[in-house]
Each structure stands twice: as C-alpha cells, then as structure tokens.
C-alpha cells in the first residue's frame, strides 16, 4: 500500500514544476484577500468569520481547477496506459491523486495563516473558531477534490472536467440557499446535502459528528464514483 505515496509525490511535484500551482495559489489569495479585507475594518471585529464564509464559494471554482488535470491529462496523452501497467492498483492511483489534490488545497491555505496571526496582533482573536475553520476548510477541500477527481476521470478534456466539477461543487454550495425551490417533504434531505451549512457549523468552532460524517461520506461517494468511471473505461 506504500505505492500511493509515489503517485502522491509525483502529482504534487507536478503542480509546482508547472505554473499551475503558482497561478492557482495567487488567484486564490487575491480573491479571498480582497473580499475579506475590503470589509474587515468596517466590521471592526477581530474574527475570521467573513473569510471562512466565502471559502466554499471560492473553493467550488478553485479546487476543480486544481483537480481537472489529474485524470483528464493522462487519458488525453495516453499515459493512463502506462500508469495501469505499472504494479499499482486502482485504489493506489485514486488515493494518490486524491491526496495530491488535498495537499494542494493545504498548500493554498498555508499562506492565509498570516491573516489570523496579523489579526491577533491588533485585536483579541478567539483561536477556537479559526482552528475549526481550517479543519473545516481541509474537509471541504477534500470533498471538492474527490468531486473534481471524479469529473476529471469522466472525460479526457480538461476544460469539460473543470466545468463539470465546478458545476457539482457550486450546486452543493448553494443548495441550502435554494431551499424555497423544493417541496416541503424533501426539505430536510436537501438541507443536509448542502455543503455550506455543514462547513459554517465547523467554522464556528462546533465540531459535530454529523458534519464530519457528511464530508467523509461525500468524499467516499466521489472517490467511489471515480473508481466506477475508471472501471467502465476498461
């Protein structure tokens, strides 16, 4: 089972060898930095809540952009054949690539730790919600990575993979804001399916097993769908 670490290492390195990582990280930092700090001083509160509340929306576009190449590129170039004839199993490949996506999310979040550090210098910051927020951000990033990975495995065109992945992530993010479209009978289910409320719970510093279970199950569904979509290609 150590095989997946080689794939993880290769994919992660690929991000930084090509310009992708730098472009994506820059865009992420500019967008989140601008939206967060443009209103930060108006609120006059030492909290990161606004930063975390816009994270799902930003992630639903940035993470599919990170994961779109993971399978599409291999399918397009044909190196997928080489990958499958190396002594690795499907789960090694999927977990390796998924972990690379999560690692990339973590690398993207890493520079933003400067925000709470700065805030704590000028105000009285409560670190509990901040730590919760970062844990939630990683869970959310993992979930969206799994979905993006599935989108990538479904097509050999990276642009389609991105649009497909972003559409799913965006829908999940907005689902609990569109509740009035749905009949009352299924309202609870729809609300549970929305990613945003689960994430906001965690980022308030409330670690609830229901929220964690939600993220882990969506992650699992995404990875399993990836597995099925790859099996179908045989």
């Amino acid at each position: 089972m150590r095989q997946f670490t080689h794939i993880l290492k290769k994919e992660f390195k690929d991000y930084f060898v090509s310009p992708i990582a730098y472009i994506v990280i820059s865009i992420f930092l500019i967008v989140t930095g601008w939206f967060f700090f443009s209103t930060f001083f108006l609120y006059n509160q030492a909290s990161m809540r606004n930063f975390f509340s816009l994270l799902p929306l930003v992630f639903s576009f940035v993470i599919p952009a990170v994961t779109m190449r993971l399978f599409s590129e291999e399918l397009h170039v044909g190196s997928y054949e080489i990958l499958l004839t190396l002594p690795v199993t499907f789960s090694d490949i999927i977990i390796g690539k998924f972990a690379a996506g999560v690692a990339m999310t973590a690398a993207m979040l890493l520079p933003t730790i400067a925000y709470p550090v700065c805030i704590s210098l000028i105000g009285d910051l409560d670190w509990g919600p901040v730590i919760g927020g970062y844990v939630g951000a990683l869970l959310l990033g993992g979930t969206f990575s799994a979905i993006g990975l599935f989108a990538s495995s479904a097509t050999h065109n990276q642009i389609i993979a991105f649009i497909f992945g972003a559409a799913i992530c965006f829908t999940l993010t907005l689902l609990d804001k569109m509740l009035f479209f749905f009949p009352e009978a299924i309202l609870n289910i729809i609300q549970y399916l929305g990613a945003d409320s689960h994430f906001q719970n965690i980022s308030r510093g409330i670690i609830d097993s229901r929220d964690i279970l939600y993220f882990i199950s969506v992650m699992f569904v995404g990875l399993y769908a990836t597995y099925l979509s790859l099996m179908k290609k045989e």
Partner: peptide
C-alpha cells in the same frame, strides 16, 4: 495482476509519457 505487472516491462505504442517531466 500486481505480481504479473511487476514481472512485465511494457513499452506502449508511441510511448505516451508525461510531457512535462
């Protein structure tokens, strides 16, 4: 499958490797 893949060295048609590496 794993043992066999380990035993076989394979050169696919037109050698499609990772172009950026």
């Amino acid at each position: 499958p794993l043992e066999i893949k380990q035993m076989i060295g394979y050169l696919p048609e037109s050698s499609p490797f990772y172009k950026g590496m």
